[in-house]
Amino acid sequence: MNELTSNEPIGSKDGIDVVSGLPVYPLGHHEPRRADIDPRAAKRAERQVALMFAVSALSIVGAIIAYIKVPNTTLIYVPPFGPVNANHLSVGLLFGLGIFLIGTGAIHWAKKLMPDVEVSEERHTYTSSPEDKAAFGQVIREGKEASGFGEYKLIRRTLLGAMALFPLPLIVFLRDLGPMPGTKLRETIWEKDVALVTDATYRKIRPEDIPVGGLVNAVPANLLAVEEEEGNLNQRGKASIILVRIDPANIVSQQGEGWDYQGILAYSKICTHVGCPISLYQQRTHHLLCPCHQSTFDLSDSGNVVFGPAARRMPQLPITVDAEGYLVAQSDFHEPIGPSFWERG
């Protein structure tokens, strides 16, 4: 240990760093702080630190009182923020201030009152001495010889084989995490004559309910029953659709002959990119925009991709009306909905 009183720092010789060869300059003269020479300054610093700790203690107690006393259901108006939960704000501010002041107090103490003369410590060399290295090599060699690891080839190979296999069951045991894909990604609960109903309110829809330029977020009529039975939202994630009505004169193409009903087109709501539900429908341009990655589809032209990272058009659901005049599906989708997958083809 060297307190840097000498002019030659550790690791230098004649003003040159023995490792890097760079010039080394001695540490400059240490400038004493006010608190080092003036007892009144030291006293002042002491009081400042103590004040911070004292205020901190008060804040912490205040935070507990606020937690108990300030109602959690009242919003108070705080000028730039608007109405804020009174309990949250008061507890947070007092607790935060309390913690913060412990920190500033400790640092102020260290900076003003603890010694500020830099000291120097020698680094040990990272590499061991040649003797130690050689001795270590010797230990390894002797151990290897004693075990016969190099000698018994059969043992070595069977051991390596067993060790390579042992983690495999741990992976295999994960098998029952989930079912096989099967045809799940290719099917939805849409089928012939399933009625289209409004999402969230589940009412059947008549064609005349949708004006040109209109948009309806819809689901199959049997969705609620299926969700009840399956206890999850999986089918909603595949069967959600949007219905739009475009003046038939403006429909350039669609995915199948007669899949619309008088200009009412049903498209999957699930983006073919990574599966966000999309209904950002722009009725004048007939574009459908995904808010996640901005893939844009032209619903007047078979739902083809006109912009963005999606590679596939939006699948169209063929629709018609039933005897009572409600919109129903002609069949399920004719291609898998949602993002691509390896087996999709």
């Binding site: 300059y25 540490l27 830099e118 120097s120």
Partner: peptide, 16 residues
């Protein structure tokens, strides 16, 4: 100043 490849110049862990 005072820094070389073989030393470390600063303050001690305890108390500073």
């Amino acid at each position: 100043a005072g820094r070389t490849e073989s030393n470390v110049v600063g303050f001690r862990l305890y108390p500073i």
